[in-house]
């Protein structure tokens, strides 16, 4: 067994400091060490995206990153996106448009979608489908996920500009 590494990272605004083996995967750190169980394990090969978190502004699959690689970095999980009293627009939209069923892919999917909308606040349906292609869902067939993300984009744009949300709305309708 290798010597333990000293790791310091920030998760959802809270600084965490601990010793861990170099082989400890970040998803394990989050789920087992820090009790942050929103991110899930689906494949352990980077294919399904159930473990998606945001690290220093990038979507990352935490099942294939060592905790030590995340040392010094700033991590956001689904738990850091909204609060029960102030949900993220994506959390609202997924419920409103039936963008989830079993819920297992949902934390990773919403975390990814939040990053996508940061990068591209006004995506087309095609942009969304391409942008979430790293996150698998076995239940929904994606149609309502795409609809939810487009709807959230429209809401966020409307909130941002307080002006017309006609563009986003048109896209939601087109996706229906």
């Amino acid at each position: 067994m290798a010597d333990k590494m000293h790791i310091k990272l920030t998760v959802n605004g809270t600084e965490e400091e601990f010793l861990a083996e170099p082989r400890e995967l970040l998803i394990y750190t989050l789920r087992e060490r820090l009790n942050i169980t929103g991110p899930h394990i689906g494949c352990e090969t980077s294919h399904c995206g159930a473990c998606t978190v945001t690290i220093d502004g990038k979507s990352v699959k935490s099942c294939t990153m060592f905790a030590v690689q995340a040392s010094g970095k700033d991590i956001t999980t689904i738990e850091g996106l909204g609060t029960p009293d102030a949900l993220h627009p994506l959390q609202e939209a997924f419920k409103e448009h039936h963008g989830l069923q079993c819920g297992y892919c949902t934390p990773g999917m919403i975390t990814r979608a939040a990053k996508l909308l940061e990068e591209n606040p006004n995506p087309t349906e095609e942009d969304v489908r391409f942008g979430i292609a790293g996150n698998l869902c076995r239940c929904t067939g994606y149609q309502n996920i795409v609809k939810s993300i487009l709807a959230a984009a429209a809401t966020m744009n409307a909130d941002a500009s307080s002006s017309s949300d006609a563009i986003g709305q048109t896209k939601v309708e087109a996706a229906e």
Binding site: T37, T77, I78, E79, F94, K95, G103, T106, P107
Partner: peptide
């Protein structure tokens, strides 16, 4: 069900 699933 969605409240808990969307909030992790």
């Amino acid at each position: 069900e969605d409240a808990r699933f969307t909030q992790g």
